[in-house]
Design a protein around this nucleic acid. Structure first.
Length: 832
RNA sequence: AGGCCCGUAGCUCAGUUGGUUAGAGCGCUUCCUUGACACGGAAGAGGUCGAUGGUUCGAGUCCAUUCGGGCCUACCA
């Protein structure tokens, strides 16, 4: 093999190198899943990102890269890797994106038009994502792509609905539900966020005939028209006598009953509270339990209803202001106090949720808390403490899962209702996917009342209803034609995702799997943290806009960063954070990645230059016959193989990187390569045997280093592999070559090497003090070894050649010297 | 209010099951360029591991308390 500036150029053309690698990987189908291959599988349930997230940033790149280190490792371990990519392109996130982008909303458009726009932005978003993932070097098998609005996913989601309906898990009910007044749709508990804000606790008088008015405290005076009862604690001496009597709702002549509930605190506000339909979940609870009247004063669009009288048509906020004024005028308002309150807002729109009565589909969940907790227990969590997040969420569940959304863009329910008795009729499984607004009802007559008229269910499913099926989507549970997955994949090996969607994606998937397959959806779950901006905050759209420099470069834009530093550099940065923890972005840390890439290239280039005329047949040597330096470096390398392997097995890519890094940089480059240079520089001093030993050692070590680094920096390692090793191996790509194995014959220590490296360190110190370049050859190294009969003295004499090489000295002489070394009794000096 | 995570060198972070003088990279100081690499090499400065108390022969590492930060959960109207 001839190595020169043509075969191994001095400079790296990153863009060209990356493109060449991608081409090679595609050509040799390196990333493709083979359904027919026997052997162990490694299947990954990857997060389908919302394609509406047009603000892709380096944080996204970070978490996807972290999962992909494991994928590349497992592929090299010989596992049959199933690594798909999905896109979540239905549901509220997409709708919100479209609303903003086109400044329209549900009321000002048709369902058809809206859906068209959604599909359009979805297609654009997917393209953007795919480009980024490819650039970053994610080894996705793109044939396994799915998108939650596509036919396969709609079929799967509808099948899930039908099956759950048939097993009695799904019910329809017309109870008060969490409501988003911006999107005008029902929500599930998981769609809520809490918002802390300052509120005012108003004291309001409820007049009573013939006695003093009752004072209640409320933060929501706008709900006074919806007040249906007053409550106090049954043991409250102040109000005990009033229980069972009534009071008049202010600004009206309605009488409401005064009731008791032990949950009412005596020391909050005045100890007397009003209950409305519906101020919060507690109101709903009392309304249900005590059969209170129903006075719905808030419309689905967040404006007051006719029942609110003078306030009808106003928004909640407007009403609050107005009613406070009216109470004041009427002399019914006491003081108010500022309170900190926590209100539930819709995660997608940010507006406070209300309770609205509307018929909805629910999946019964609350009866299964214990089972879900058991499933959580069965899962292997990486890192383990993330499990708490799920467990606490499950324990805190208050509502069954409302899966219906009164929206446009999503998977339709495969349901028609009888026009006369409202009985639901479901689609047949064979007909899926269906759209009941377009497709005819499969029944000719209602099974209950014989009615002949049907109307399709206009609602769409919660987006999580589909994405929670991702393992079943991957495994082609619904049997869509032409898809590569099969239930053989099930349960999958691992779910990878970030922590913020534990309560949604992870939880719902666990539940779905429990229902449909009575098993876990995967064995393991790997939870990543977030990439944060330089201030340690979530990377925001503002970061992406604000920090763009004059040339258009933005350090949070993953494309820009990849273009500037190379994909390997970005990946290397991502590998620096430990699993589950957030990682602050810093451009300097990306530069570190770049340094590694350059270092790998140059180290490989150095090795290659020494190979000159390397012939695998003659340039081999049994391990035991090699020089101590050579045996030492291979033993050190052998030591880290199980460390790196175990780390990867436990999803601890960070540990793997650290061990590899330490070996490559400080043992291999700084010490080993420096020690052996002299064998090639001053050939006459060393026997040919020493050079052959070095050549085959360098080659072996470099090859192993490439393998260990491959999952992190796939481009540079592949490129070096192609130049130096491809020819001699029958594997077309490093990434499907064999993972290094621990060699039990290469264990133990070489004590002589400690002596050599201590002397090397001391010589380096002297060179620095004497301002002599580290590479310059010195004339003499004087060693003062004290008692010539001592063990150290003997070792030094035996290792003289190695010491001379390490010190880069023409001669070694023994005699008095003044500078202490790290070795006891050994002093030394150097002369230029 | 409860829970989880974090608080280690100027900065970003490692520190496995408690064990000798606490680590890396960046930054800083000084020095070294024909011989893979200055995106390099060498030498060095810099930390009483948030605080307090405890367990132990021994704690950054375990326990308790406390302060600060982040996140999650929560009906006090």
């Amino acid at each position: 093999m001839i190595i020169d500036d043509t075969t191994f150029p001095k400079d790296i053309d990153t863009a060209q190198m990356e493109e060449a690698c991608r081409k090679l990987w595609d050509e040799h189908r390196v990333h493709l899943y083979d359904p027919d291959r026997p052997g162990e599988m490694f299947s990954v349930d990857t997060p389908p990102p919302y394609v509406s997230a047009s603000h892709l940033h380096v944080g996204h790149a970070m978490s996807y890269a972290q999962a992909e280190f494991i994928v590349r490792y497992q592929r090299m371990r010989g596992r049959n890797v199933f690594y798909p990519m999905g896109f979540d392109d239905n549901g509220l996130p997409t709708e919100r994106f479209v609303e903003k982008k086109y400044s329209i909303n549900k009321r000002k458009t048709t369902r058809k038009e809206f859906r068209e726009l959604c599909l359009q932005v979805t297609a654009e978003g997917i393209k953007q994502y795919e480009e980024l993932w490819r650039a970053l070097g994610l080894s996705v098998d793109w044939r396994l792509r799915y998108s939650t609005i596509d036919e396969h996913c709609r079929r799967t989601a509808q099948k899930s609905f039908i099956e759950l309906f048939q097993m009695g898990r799904i019910y329809r009910s017309n109870e008060p539900v969490l409501w988003d007044t911006h999107f005008e749709t029902a929500l599930a508990q998981a769609d809520l966020e809490s918002l802390e804000r300052k509120g005012k606790l108003h004291q309001v008088s409820f007049p009573r005939n013939g006695s003093d008015p009752l004072i209640i405290a409320t933060t929501r005076p706008e709900l006074i028209p919806a007040c249906v009862a007053l409550y106090c604690n049954p043991a409250d001496a102040r109000y005990k006598e009033l229980i069972g009597k009534s009071a008049t709702v202010p600004l009206s002549n309605r009488e409401v009953p005064i009731k008791a509930d032990a949950d009412v605190s005596t020391d909050f506000g005045t100890g007397m509270m009003m209950v409305c339909t519906f101020g919060d979940g507690e109101d709903v609870r009392r309304w249900k339990r005590d059969g209170l009247d129903t006075r719905l004063c808030i419309n689905p669009n967040g404006k007051m209803t006719e029942l609110a009288g003078a306030y009808a048509g106003l928004t909640v906020d407007e009403t609050r202001k107005k009613i406070v004024g009216d109470l004041q005028t009427a002399g019914l308002l006491g003081g108010n106090t500022a309170v900190d309150q926590v209100v539930s807002v819709s995660e997608r729109s940010g507006v406070p949720v209300e309770f609205i009565m509307a018929p909805q589909w629910f999946i019964k969940m609350l009866d299964l808390k214990a089972e879900f907790l058991k499933r959580s227990e069965e899962l292997r969590w990486f890192p383990d403490w993330m499990k708490t997040r799920l467990d606490q969420w499950i324990e805190g569940l208050k509502y069954d899962w409302n899966i219906a959304r009164q929206r446009f863009y999503g998977v339709p329910f495969p349901v028609w209702f009888c026009g006369s008795c409202n009985e639901p009729v479901l689609a047949t499984e064979a007909s899926l996917p269906v759209d009941p607004l377009e497709d005819p009802c499969p029944a000719s007559a209602c099974p209950k009342c014989g009615g002949k008229e049907f109307r399709g269910d206009p609602d769409v499913m919660d987006t999580w209803m589909t994405s929670s099926l991702s393992p079943l989507i991957n495994a082609n549970w619904a049997g869509s034609p032409g898809r590569l997955g099969s239930m053989k994949l099930y349960p999958m090996t691992v779910r990878v995702q970030a922590f913020e969607i534990i309560r949604t994606w992870l939880f719902y998937t666990l539940a779905k799997s429990h229902f449909h397959t009575n098993s876990l959806p995967w064995n393991d779950v790997m939870i990543s943290g977030w990439g944060l901006n330089e201030n340690g905050r979530k990377i925001s759209k503002r970061d992406l806009e604000q920090f763009t420099d004059a040339t258009g470069y933005n350090r949070y834009d993953p494309y820009a960063v990849i273009k500037k530093f190379g994909a390997d550099s970005v990946r290397f940065w991502a590998a620096g954070g430990s699993l589950g923890h957030d990682l602050r972005f810093n451009e300097r840390d990306i530069q570190n990645g770049r340094k590694l890439v350059v270092k790998l290239w140059n180290a490989a280039r150095f090795c290659a230059l020494q190979f000159g005329g390397f012939d695998a047949k003659t340039d081999t040597m049994p391990f035991v016959e090699r020089t101590p330096e050579d045996r030492w470096v291979l033993m050190e390398l052998n030591k880290i193989i199980p460390v790196v392997t175990t780390a990867f097995d436990n999803y601890s890519y960070h540990e793997a990187r650290e061990a590899t890094e330490k070996f490559f940089w400080s043992v291999f480059c700084d010490d080993y390569l420096e020690m052996i240079k002299d064998r090639f520089w001053t050939q006459a001093e060393y026997p040919e045997h020493a050079r052959i030993s070095a050549r085959c050692t360098m080659r072996e070590a470099l090859r192993l280093i490439l393998a260990l680094y491959a999952p992190f920096v796939p481009y540079i390692t592949e490129s070096i592999y192609q130049i130096l090793f491809r020819e001699g191996e029958n594997t077309p790509s490093l990434h499907i070559s064999k993972w290094p194995e621990f060699d039990s014959a290469r264990t133990g220590e070489i004590p002589e090497m400690t002596v050599v490296s201590e002397i090397l360190t001391a010589v380096r110190g002297l060179r620095t003090t004497k301002k002599i370049a580290q590479t310059r050859r010195i004339s003499t190294l004087t060693l003062d070894i004290g008692d010539p009969g001592s063990k150290i003295a003997e070792t030094i004499k035996r290792m003289e050649l190695s010491i001379k090489a390490a010190a880069r000295s023409k001669d070694v002489i023994y005699g008095p010297a003044t500078v202490n070394s790290g070795l006891e009794q050994v002093r030394l000096d150097i002369a230029e």
